[in-house]
């Protein structure tokens, strides 16, 4: 589904990704773990096309398309969902309006008919229910006044509504209490654990990986994937630390 080859990315004058290669096939869930400053968030922003994250070498092929040629909103329409570590507040714009406009923009660029108001509300109710989120929160301004956990839950509701092919989830588990983690974990499974979809989970902790079982675990250090294994690698990392495992 996505093939990243020799990706080099820099922010300002600092090179952060230094030749990262990674391939995800449909039906797979991959986890990326790594110490602080390894480049985990940079990878997700580089794939999302965030301004300021300059790709200096390498290629990313997504479903036969050159991903790096696309603008951020075109990447979303192509099927990539970026789950933010720190979801952004947008005062005055309601979640429902934001998501309906987003979804319909994506549909339009794919040549699909827009969803009507009624169709959209039905979809939003279903996905909010799945993540145990109150519909009233969806009527409020995007992430404004939400707790850290509510923001992350809202990211997953958005993912459910948008229904992407590939989800790149940047520390979606951080800031969640145990109950919320369980809800988010089962949300990821329900929405994304499908033969035609793939997930790239960026996380520090093994706990989320007990709920969302990865097929592959990668260690990212110094801007490169330094080790790849199965789920057992996450357990080993948790026990022994990055330094011992990735050395």
């Amino acid at each position: 589904m996505i093939k990243i080859e020799n990706l080099h990315a820099q922010v300002g004058d600092t090179e952060i990704l230094k030749g990262l290669s990674l391939e995800l096939n449909a039906g797979e869930i991959h986890a990326i773990m790594g110490p602080n400053g390894a480049g985990k968030s940079t990878l997700s922003y580089a794939l999302g096309g965030r301004p300021g994250y300059e790709i200096t070498a390498g290629s990313v092929n997504f479903d036969g398309q050159d991903l790096l040629e696309l603008d951020p909103h075109e990447r979303a329409a192509a099927g990539i969902f970026l789950g933010f570590q720190y979801p952004v507040e947008i005062p005055g714009v309601s979640n429902l309006q934001f998501l309906r406009e987003s979804l319909n923009s994506q549909r339009k660029s794919r040549g699909e008919e827009p969803l009507s108001g009624a169709e959209f509300i039905k979809l939003a109710k279903e996905k909010a229910g799945l993540l145990k989120m109150d519909m009233d929160m969806l009527k409020r301004a995007v992430n404004v006044g939400f707790s850290g956990g509510e923001k992350k839950r809202n990211e997953m509701v958005q993912m459910g509504i948008i229904d992407p092919k590939l989800a790149i989830l940047d520390e979606t588990d951080s800031g969640l209490d145990i109950d919320a983690l369980r809800v988010v974990g089962s949300g990821i499974n329900a929405i994304m654990r499908k033969p035609e979809k793939a997930v790239l989970l960026i996380t520090h902790y093994q706990r989320l990986l007990e709920l969302v079982k990865p097929d592959f675990v990668h260690v990212l250090a110094g801007g490169r994937i330094v080790k790849t294994g199965g789920p057992e690698l996450a357990v080993q990392l948790e026990e022994e630390g990055y330094e011992a495992v990735a050395a």
């Binding site: 999302g48 096309g49 965030r50 301004p51 603008d71 951020p72 909103h73 990447r75 979303a76 329409a77 969902f81 970026l82 933010f84 979801p87 952004v88 507040e89 947008i90 005062p91 005055g92 714009v93 309006q97 934001f98 998501l99 406009e101 987003s102 979804l103 923009s105 994506q106 660029s109 301004a141 958005q158 948008i162």
Partner: peptide
Amino acid sequence: KQALFYMAARGLPPELAQKLMLQA
């Protein structure tokens, strides 16, 4: 700018994202 990128990452073209923010 962060909000604009967040909105783009959900599929909103820049001109529509800007319109929503200014409207609000």
